[in-house]
Simulated assay, not measured.
Amino acid sequence: MSFDRLSSLEAQTPSSTGYSDDPEFASLTSSLSSRLFTLTSNITQLNRQLALVGTKKDSEVVRGRVTRLLDETRAGFRDVTEGVKRAKSWEDPTAAMKYTQEKLQNQLTAAMAEFQSAQRLSAEKTRQYVAATKRQIHEQDEERYTDEGEGQQVPLVQQQVQRAALAEQSEVDFQESLIVQREEEIRDIERGITELNDIFRDLGTMVSAQGESLDIIETNIATVAQDHKAAHLELRGAAKYQKSARNRMCCLLLILAVVLTVILLAIFLG
């Protein structure tokens, strides 16, 4: 599913709560949560199929399911990662929206880590298959060479001709074609592992950038707090000065009243 199709689904997905500060954001994150749930289910199925690889229940059908799940899940992570990046870059998010952003990113990171482990396990089991098949072909060649060499000495060229004539060429060709196919699958898985590592780095860079923004905000808050504290001290100083000036004024008025009283008494008594 491409991200364009994901966007079209977003418009059809209602908010699960019935209320949201931003309906478009709620639609996007709801769709991303649904996709992440699907990817997690894919990983569970993938691990179940990988458990069969290398056992008696192993078959081309099982390996085909593994390849399909790897491809589908890898493509799904590409789309969901773009969606999470879009959600993380949403302008003016509320506190609830920020919580949803962090939750989505944590879910994405955890799911990708689980898928990365499944990819590595698939690559390892495929390498084991290739090595075992090559060893089987080599042992068959050695066995034919021994059978032909028993009882008589045959020139090397004749031995090679006889081995080629006696070999079940169709079976050898089939095994070799499987080896080529498996080696190509290993290369695809290794490319997927590298791609997922790049996504991890992108998410890490995004988190670092957001951390720097949070540090700037925290610094600004600390600066405002310091300015507020300084202003509070200045206001307290001004209030103290004003109170002191008021006390001095009261004392001055009291002295003037006493002097005026003395003068009036002197006049009336004189």
Rank of each mutant, 00 (worst) to 15 (best):
E139P: 04
Q175M: 12
F115E: 05
Q136T: 09
T133G: 01
Q162I: 00
A118M: 05
Q169A: 02
Q105E: 15
H138W: 10
Q153T: 10
Q105F: 08
A110Y: 10
A75G: 09
A167L: 01
A87N: 12
A95N: 07
E150M: 02
M97V: 05
G151A: 03
E124S: 05
T100W: 10
E72F: 08
M112R: 10
Q140I: 00
N106V: 10
T100Q: 10
Q162A: 08
T100I: 14
A113P: 08
F77S: 01
K125M: 11
E82R: 06
R120Q: 15
K98G: 03
F77R: 01
E150L: 01
Q159R: 04
T81Y: 09
S122Q: 04
D173E: 15
Q158F: 07
D92T: 06
S89E: 15
K88F: 12
Q136E: 15
F115R: 01
T146M: 02
D141S: 00
R135A: 15
T133N: 07
Q159F: 00
Q152C: 05
R135F: 10
M97S: 04
Q159I: 01
D141T: 03
S117D: 14
S177D: 15
S170Y: 12
A165M: 01
A123R: 05
F77W: 11
R74C: 10
A95G: 02
A131E: 15
T94W: 08
K85Y: 14
L178H: 15
R135N: 14
S170L: 11
F115T: 00
D92R: 12
A123I: 05
F115A: 02
S89A: 13
Q162T: 06
L178E: 15
Q169R: 07
A132M: 12
Q160A: 09
T126A: 06
R86F: 14
D71G: 12
R120L: 09
S89W: 13
E82F: 15
G149F: 03
E176F: 11
L108C: 07
D92L: 08
E143K: 02
D79K: 02
T126F: 04
D147F: 02
Y145F: 09
R86Y: 14
M97C: 01
R127F: 04
L108S: 08
R74S: 15
E82C: 01
S89T: 09
A87F: 11
T94L: 04
D141Q: 00
A132V: 03
A110S: 07
G151D: 07
R163C: 00
F174L: 11
L156F: 13
E114K: 03
E72R: 11
L121K: 09
S177N: 14
L156W: 11
E72S: 12
L178R: 15
Q119P: 06
L104H: 08
